[in-house]
Every structure is written in structure tokens, then in C-alpha cells.
Design a protein around this nucleic acid. Structure first.
Lengths: 224, 224
DNA sequence: ACTATAGGTGTACGATGTACACTTGTCAAC
DNA sequence: GTTGACAAGTGTACATCGTACACCTATAGT
């Protein structure tokens, strides 16, 4: 008799929880992402989640690994430079889609997608002829650049035309004399009209780094 | 009669609150940093803090600006490359001291030290002959690298000899077959005995970037 | 001497993560 | 078909967090 369900709810599962969690974080932000909000999204009581994930921390681990799984692995069919370039661009795009993950990519218990990714990148470099030391260097510069760029891109919440005024006003409160910062004034005036594009900017720095690495590919540990 | 104070407490002030806040975040971590903990540190009731800072967010703004104030500005007495190199190294060192600040340097209401810093860096590049577009590129690569490196350095909680075993064990639970990741195995075995040093690693990538920038200093927007 | 004001206190509220004890729905074994 | 085990979902409760609000209290200006 108790079976008169209005709508039969699809049962939860770890995968469904993780998927919903990523979706929620994507469009509510990490700030607003809570176990309670996630439960509501899944039409379930908060504690139900704990049947599928150990706790919020472990949930975040799983979410980050989903993000890793969306990053294109370096292709074996390309020369190392092209392969690294593609995976770097793919990483930035993925992090743009899931910007809540930016600070967490390397700080949590690594999942399988994470490990596969790191292994593939390291493998690509070693097969391209980088010595072990050089491969470490190459990996380190690239990832620092990628993650750092993603961070900056997220943080400079780039002034859409209509948010620009508001942001400027907020700043006016902070800055006593704008004229004390002539170079910032230059940026504030010239940048908007310069057609600045984050994707282009990212590629510019990436190419600078990859060019440098190509030059040093067969060298010893010291640069230049 | 009520004046029988055991110890006369130095009165609070915005500066004292901020200073204590930075100190607490430094050695308790951002996780454990709460208004209540800070109040306790200052021997005061939590709500007393709100007479000197508007709320936790504004407090964090102030803390970040203190961090900025500790970063060496590019010296006008040096060539641009040396000046940029020094301020980059100083930035990394400062972020190492205050690792809680790493994700927040560019994400909050900028304070005066922040603005001074950005203005000085941009000024250094422009005076060195970089065109506006090139200066933006140069700034972007450098800062992305610096912040990204700091992030990685913090996150790869680098296996002190005694934490290494524990970390490996944790990983063993996650990894089904370690042999699926041959290049990670290489890293895990060779890196510890390679004398890896974060400061050296940072300088390596930094020099690669600065060399690349020097080459392009007088060029147009496109690299290489 | 009086009173305005700045600085510190105490209580209270809503939100959060999650422990723990409970009900329920499903299916295997008899 | 009954039973009984186990997995999935529920409900209540608690500590901790940021902070609103009303209240004291000490000092300083008149």
C-alpha cells in the first residue's frame, strides 16, 4: 500500500552523486557548494549522500578526478611539442569549465585519472628524448604556468562591460590617488580596447615556454 | 574599584588584528583560521574583532595586502631582467612563508601594497622598452608561472623522509596496479635521490621564461 | 560633573559537516 | 510464501562557524 509513489526516483549511486556535485559546483561556485545543497539537488536528505561518499573531503577528491578525466591526454601520434601544446590548452579549457577545481588539482588524494594524466605527460617527455632531470624541469614549468594562468584568469573576473563601472567604483574607494599608479592607469585605459583574449594570451606564454624547452631538449640540467 | 586589572591588556587596533591574523594563518593554516580562534589569540571575545574589521572577508583582504607588502619591489637600479628575477624570487619566498595566501593574491579587493606592486612591475617592463602589448604578455607569463609554482610547491607536500612511507601507503590503497604507471614509478624512485630543490627548480623555469622574454623584448606581439 | 563615543562583552541565530539510531525496500534462501 | 539480511534513505542532534544586536564601560571633551 505504501507503494503509491508520485515519481519513482532513480536511486543514488556514487557516480550520480559525483556528477551532480560537479554540476552544482560548476554553476553555484565552491562557496555555495554544500552537502545540504547537493542533497537538495538530488532530491534527497543530506545524510543519504553519506551512503555513497565517506565525507565532503572524499567527495571533493572524486570531483577533482572527474575534472582530470576531461583533460585530453598527450597524443602519441604527435611530436612532443604539439602533444604538450594540445594537452596544455585542453587543461586550461577544462579548468575554465570547472574553475572551482583550480586550487585543488594537485592538493588532494590523487585518483586514477590524475595518475593516468601525470604518467602520460611524463611519458611523452621522456619518449621525446628529455633526460629525467630535463623532463622534471619541463613538467614543472609547464604545469606551474598552466595552473597559474588558470588562477589568474579566474581571479581577474574580467570586467564585462557592465561590471566594469561597478568594479571601478569599488576601486575608487580603495585608491586614494589614482595618479600614484600611472602604469596601472595605462593598463586600465589601453587593455579594454586592445582586444585582449585569454585564450590568445595563454597560447602566447605557452609557446614561449615550449620554444625554450625545445632549445634545451638535449641539454644538461642548466638552462641557457 | 573595578580597576584592579591583573594584566593591563594592550588595546586592539586594526593593525594588531591584521598582524595577529597573519601570524595565526601562518602557523595554523587557513582551515583552522577562524574569527573565534583569532579572538582567543588576542585574548578577547570574538565580537571585539568586529570593531576593527568589517567582517572576515575584509579581514582577509587586509591580510593579503600585508603579504604583498613583504614582496620586494623591482629595483630601478638593476636591468629589467635582474629586477624581475629578484622580485619573482622574493614573491615565491613570501608565498612560502604565507602559503595560505597563495590562492588569494589576485582574487580580492586590492589594497595599496598590491597596487604599488603591480604598478612597479608594469613600470619596470615599460621602462625596459617592452611595448604595451609585450609588457602585458611578459607580466602574464611571469605571474602565472610564479603563482602556479607556489601552488604546486604547497600542494606536493614534499615527502619528508618520514612522511614518505605514509604517503606511499595511502597511495597503495588508491592504485590498483602501480605498474600501470611506469613513468610515475620512475619519478617516485629517482626524484628523492636527485637532490631536488624547489628554489633551484623555480629559478630554472624562471630563467627559461626571462630568456625567452629578452629575445622578444623588441618584437611585435607574436612570439618566436 | 556630565555626557558622547569608542572599545569590549554576552547572548543568540542560522548555516554547516556529520555521528548515530531508525525505517524501508529488495532479494536470496529456505 | 515467509523470513531475514543487507543496502539505501530518513530524522534528530551536536559542535563549530560567521556575525547581528543589545548591552556595558572606560575615557575624553565640554
Amino acid at each position: 500500500m505504501t507503494s503509491a509513489r508520485i515519481t519513482t526516483r532513480k536511486p543514488l549511486s556514487r557516480a550520480r552523486v559525483l556528477q551532480a556535485a560537479v554540476a552544482l559546483a560548476d554553476d553555484a561556485g565552491l562557496e555555495a557548494f554544500s552537502m545540504r545543497a547537493l542533497a537538495q539537488e538530488l532530491d534527497v536528505v543530506p545524510m543519504a549522500l553519506y551512503k555513497h561518499v565517506a565525507n565532503k573531503d572524499e567527495l571533493l577528491d572524486g570531483m577533482v578526478d572527474i575534472v582530470f578525466s576531461e583533460i585530453e591526454l598527450p597524443s602519441a601520434d604527435l611530436d612532443w611539442r604539439s602533444a604538450m601544446r594540445r594537452r596544455a590548452i585542453s587543461t586550461r579549457e577544462t579548468l575554465k569549465r570547472h574553475s572551482w577545481a583550480i586550487g585543488m588539482m594537485e592538493s588532494r588524494q590523487p585518483g586514477p585519472a590524475n595518475l593516468r594524466n601525470h604518467d602520460a605527460v611524463m611519458g611523452c617527455l621522456r619518449k621525446a628524448g628529455f633526460s629525467f632531470e630535463m623532463a622534471i624541469h619541463a613538467y614543472s614549468v609547464q604545469d606551474a604556468y598552466i595552473y597559474g594562468f588558470a588562477l589568474q584568469e579566474r581571479d581577474t573576473g574580467f570586467e564585462t562591460p557592465d561590471s566594469a563601472g561597478e568594479a571601478a567604483q569599488r576601486r575608487a574607494g580603495t585608491i586614494s590617488a589614482f595618479e600614484d599608479y600611472p602604469y596601472l592607469v595605462e593598463v586600465a585605459t589601453k587593455l579594454p580596447e586592445s582586444g585582449f583574449d585569454n585564450a590568445v594570451e595563454f597560447a602566447w606564454g605557452l609557446d614561449l615556454i615550449l620554444d625554450g624547452l625545445e632549445r634545451l631538449r638535449h641539454a644538461g640540467p642548466a638552462p641557457a
